[in-house]
Design a protein around this nucleic acid. Structure first.
Length: 488
DNA sequence: ATGTTGATTGTTCCG
DNA sequence: CGGAACAATCAACAT
């Protein structure tokens, strides 16, 4: 079964003709190919979204294949998988985000099938999305659901417009949640966070008490209770006694302190983790997040946690750097790309520590420390984590199978243009030559890069299309910067 | 101590 | 008394 499904997946959309930085070239069913300029993709097991070069997401549906080949999509038996050995840190340095793609895209496996673990990864429910920026760089928060929403609601938004494949099956994997590589998580988050932050408004409006008044709290609170009819917290019974001092009521009017970087990180990450592994408890998630956090590297942690959110920081430029509408804290979330396997790794005890090690800060922050990227030693059969940052040409060689494809532009599934969130990430602190010219190209959508004309049959083509630099660390460094953004 | 999320529990009010 | 609405608490972890 696994194979079957895997195959389906591979056949449907995982032929990765090339992947570089934020661009993904995919071979679609019907021999069509597309360049996903940006993306983010969401997998709910049946489908994947890929941001198209034109900024519109492309839905790659695999459901047909699945259906035809498997009895029920709903119940996959996914045996616990042992994640392939984690890649060397060095391998990760570039590609957090590639990692996720690889899981999907490395259709190059000898058998043409994706490794089981890959398939599992795809199976996971929510992964997702990102680049919520409009082509012009505006955040699409209003148009696209936040990641969290997507994760939890399982893509409701998309589903609504798309009958078919995209059903999330959140619960399905709970028990099998499998391993996610930290790197993937991180990379995913990187992309995603921007989204989530775009809609800062806490969903839980309930707590969002707009405490109107601002006088003495006590009085106020009392008045509030009276007026609203709500009950004031009566002397807490049992639990409170337990830890009475734990929470003292704080002044509603009191300015909120900046949330710590870790908190933000947690926020972004947990959604992804949960999405993939609904059954994960808070404790589990917390541990995972902690591991990931560790993996991020001290360097970043050291940065003052006053992110953009903090007003005080506004003096700092992140805001300036970022496109207008960008949330200050636009660290791309890892969340979206979490793969089950990653979680599994964590859960399985697969030593978070080791993971952390693996994900050393450098891995995550290529841009920052592109330093010693040992030659990619990733296995031929690339396991899950083949996120390696290969030089463009190298990637081309590896990733682009000789496939002939005919250009076939596909109608964007989503109304909302996906944006290159990357821009955001990049804009802030460009360690290198980061003007991603190509980015500007993409938005045009119908540009040359688009599915049409170009006939990316050969890696060379791919390469030529995209300057080597793109795949280089510099480009990939976008993700890595995620954390930095948090910390910014 | 505070923050992260989500579930649970406890409290109060109303019909 | 049951239901609704809301607040408080808890979990693990980092700051």
């Amino acid at each position: 079964m696994q194979q079957t499904r895997t195959e389906a997946v591979a056949g449907s959309f995982s032929r990765c003709l090339g992947f570089c930085g934020m661009r993904l070239r995919l071979l679609l069913p019907g021999r069509r190919w597309c360049i996903a300029g940006v993306f983010l993709r969401k997998f709910d097991g049946d489908s994947a979204y890929v941001g198209m070069s034109d900024g519109n997401p492309e839905l790659l549906s695999t459901s047909q294949t699945y259906n035809s080949q498997s009895d029920s999509n709903e119940d996959y038996e996914i045996p616990p998988i042992t994640p392939p050995s984690l890649p060397e840190p060095s391998l990760l340095h570039l590609g957090d985000h590639e990692a996720s793609y690889h899981s999907l895209c490395h259709g190059l496996a000898p058998s043409g099938l994706l490794p089981a673990y890959s398939y599992q990864a795809m199976d996971l429910p929510a992964i997702m999305v990102s680049n919520m920026l409009a082509q012009d760089g505006h955040l699409l928060s209003g148009q696209l659901p936040t990641i969290q929403e997507m994760v939890h609601s399982e893509v409701a938004a998309y589903d609504s417009s798309r009958p078919g494949p995209l059903l999330g099956r959140p619960a399905m994997l709970a028990s099998h949640m499998s391993a996610l590589s930290q790197s993937q998580l991180i990379s995913q988050m990187g992309i995603r966070s921007s989204i989530s932050h775009s809609s800062p408004s806490p969903p839980g409006s309930k707590s969002a008490t707009p405490s109107p008044s601002s006088s003495t709290q006590e009085e106020e609170s009392e008045a509030h209770f009276k007026i609203s009819g709500e009950k004031r917290p009566s002397a807490d019974p049992g639990k409170k006694a337990k830890n009475p001092k734990k929470k003292k009521k704080k002044d509603p009017n009191e300015p909120q302190k900046p949330v710590s970087a870790y908190a933000l990180f947690f926020r972004d990450t947990q959604a992804a983790i949960k999405g993939q592994n609904p059954s994960a408890t808070f404790g589990d998630v917390s541990k995972i997040v902690a591991s990931m956090w560790d993996s991020l590297g001290e360097e970043q942690k050291q940065s003052p946690p006053d992110q953009g959110e903090t007003k005080s920081t506004q003096a700092n430029p992140p805001a300036k750097l970022l496109p207008a509408k960008q949330p200050m804290y636009s660290m791309p979330g890892l969340a979206s790309f979490l793969t089950p396997s990653d979680l599994q790794a964590f859960r399985s005890g697969a030593s978070p520590a080791s993971l952390a090690r693996t994900l050393g800060s450098k891995s995550l922050l290529p841009g920052l420390s592109t330093s010693s990227p040992p030659p990619p030693s990733f296995p031929l059969s690339p396991p899950l984590h083949q996120q390696l940052p290969l030089p463009p040409h190298a990637q081309g060689a590896l990733l682009s199978p000789p496939v002939s494809m005919s250009p076939a532009p596909q109608p964007p599934v989503l109304p909302t243009p996906m944006a290159l969130q990357v821009q955001l990430a990049m804009s802030p602190s460009p360690p290198g030559p980061q003007d991603f010219p190509h980015i500007s190209e993409f938005p045009s959508g119908s540009g040359p890069r688009s599915p049409g004309p170009s006939n990316p049959t050969s890696s060379g083509d791919w390469d030529s299309s995209y300057p080597s630099g793109e795949c280089g660390i510099g480009t990939c460094s976008l993700l890595p910067r995620d954390k930095s953004l948090y910390l910014t």
